[in-house]
Design a protein around this nucleic acid. Structure first.
Length: 215
DNA sequence: AGCACGATGCTCT
DNA sequence: GAGCATCGTGCTT
């Protein structure tokens, strides 16, 4: 079955989620974002995928959050209004995409860690680097099953840092158009990659994953 | 299926 | 100068 074929059936695809959706704590927004549609407009084409994995980063007290160092050049967007994109560069080569949450001056964001692509698959595959030795991944899920992978796949980079995801004229937004998600479908674990972060922040279960994804 | 490693440059101390 | 909210490769079970 082709997910792309059913793409036309998704409702409200062109309508961004209201800002009020993001006006709460990140650990409240993060599970609620599962099943929503991440949509990217690129040169007239539409690329989209259902959000399947998120992580919450909440406040200066969260020692896993970039805002632990306070307000800096990099973290400024997180202190701004909710519904904006916080995109940063890491490990010398990767971009990571977050959605700013909570109120102004209350730094918080949800990292989008994985999506299941449903539209623009040809472009998505083209944007992914071609493996040099390994065989090209055959399952489309493998093109967007990591936070840096999905940024490559949707051509998201630092140029889009700070943009308003709730503005209909933006080329990146989130739509209430994926699928319904029940609590029983959500796995909660500690966040990935926080190896030097002290407890309880290192293990706090702020990573949210859908159990039922194609693979 | 799982671990170790290197690539590579920005941010904060 | 240390440490990264990662990924692909290659080697080991």
């Amino acid at each position: 079955m082709s997910l792309e074929r059913t793409f036309a059936h998704y409702k409200d695809l062109d309508q961004p989620i209201l800002r009020s959706f993001f006006s709460t704590r990140a650990d409240n927004c993060a599970p609620n974002l599962l099943g929503k549609m991440l949509v990217r407009r690129y040169q007239g084409e539409t690329l989209a995928g259902i959000i399947t994995e998120t992580e919450a980063y909440q406040g200066e007290e969260d020692l896993g959050c970039h805002a632990k160092a306070g307000r800096t050049m990099r973290t400024a967007v997180m202190y701004g209004p909710p519904g904006h994109a916080y995109i940063y560069f890491t490990y010398g080569m990767h971009w990571l995409f977050n959605v700013v949450c909570d109120e102004v001056n209350q730094p918080a964001a949800v990292l989008i860690r994985a999506i299941e692509p449903v539209a623009g698959l040809n472009l998505i595959r083209k944007f992914r680097p071609q493996p040099q030795f390994k065989r090209q991944e055959l399952v489309s899920h493998g093109w967007t099953d990591g936070p840096a992978k999905l940024c490559q796949a949707l051509s998201i980079n630092g140029e889009m840092n700070g943009i308003d995801l709730c503005d209909p004229s933006s080329d990146l937004w989130i739509a209430d158009a994926g699928r319904e998600v029940h609590d029983s479908e959500i796995i909660r674990t500690g966040r990935i990659g926080l190896n030097r972060v002290p407890e309880p922040w290192r293990s706090i279960p702020w990573r949210y994953q859908l159990t039922t994804t194609t693979g």
